Amino acid sequence: MTTLRSAPMMPAVILETERLRLRALLERDVDDLYASCVDPELQRWIPQPGPGLPYTRATAEHFCLREAPAIRTGGDGQHWAVVDRASGRFSGSVALLRTQWTSGVTEIGYWISPWGRGRGLATEAVVAVSRWALGQGFQRVELKAAVDNTGSCRVAEAAGFVREGTDRNAMPLHEGRTDLASFGLVPDDLR
Results as ranks from 00 to 15, higher is better:
residue 186 V to S: 00
residue 178 T to F: 02
residue 68 A to H: 04
residue 21 R to K: 14
residue 55 Y to C: 13
residue 157 E to F: 02
residue 149 N to A: 07
residue 107 E to D: 13
residue 142 E to S: 06
residue 125 A to I: 06
residue 96 L to F: 09
residue 23 R to S: 09
residue 31 D to A: 11
residue 179 D to W: 10
residue 101 W to D: 11
residue 47 P to H: 10
residue 47 P to R: 09
residue 44 R to D: 06
residue 116 G to T: 06
residue 138 F to K: 01
residue 68 A to M: 05
residue 60 A to S: 09
residue 30 V to H: 01
residue 172 P to R: 15
residue 1 M to P: 08
residue 95 A to G: 07
residue 22 L to D: 06
residue 30 V to A: 11
residue 112 I to R: 04
residue 30 V to G: 06
residue 1 M to H: 08
residue 165 G to A: 03
residue 188 D to M: 02
residue 153 C to I: 05
residue 26 L to D: 13
residue 169 N to C: 10
residue 154 R to G: 14
residue 79 H to G: 00
residue 162 V to P: 04
residue 173 L to T: 03
residue 140 R to G: 01
residue 115 W to A: 14
residue 140 R to T: 04
residue 80 W to A: 04
residue 152 S to W: 13
residue 156 A to C: 12
residue 65 L to G: 00
residue 174 H to N: 15
residue 52 G to D: 13
residue 102 T to L: 13
residue 39 D to N: 14
residue 61 E to L: 04
residue 182 S to H: 12
residue 27 E to Q: 10
residue 96 L to H: 07
residue 184 G to Q: 03
residue 37 C to L: 11
residue 59 T to E: 15
residue 142 E to P: 00
residue 145 A to H: 04
residue 67 E to Y: 10
residue 172 P to H: 14
residue 183 F to Q: 00
residue 97 L to E: 09
residue 84 D to Q: 08
residue 152 S to N: 09
residue 51 P to I: 06
residue 121 L to Y: 15
residue 78 Q to I: 15
residue 49 P to D: 08
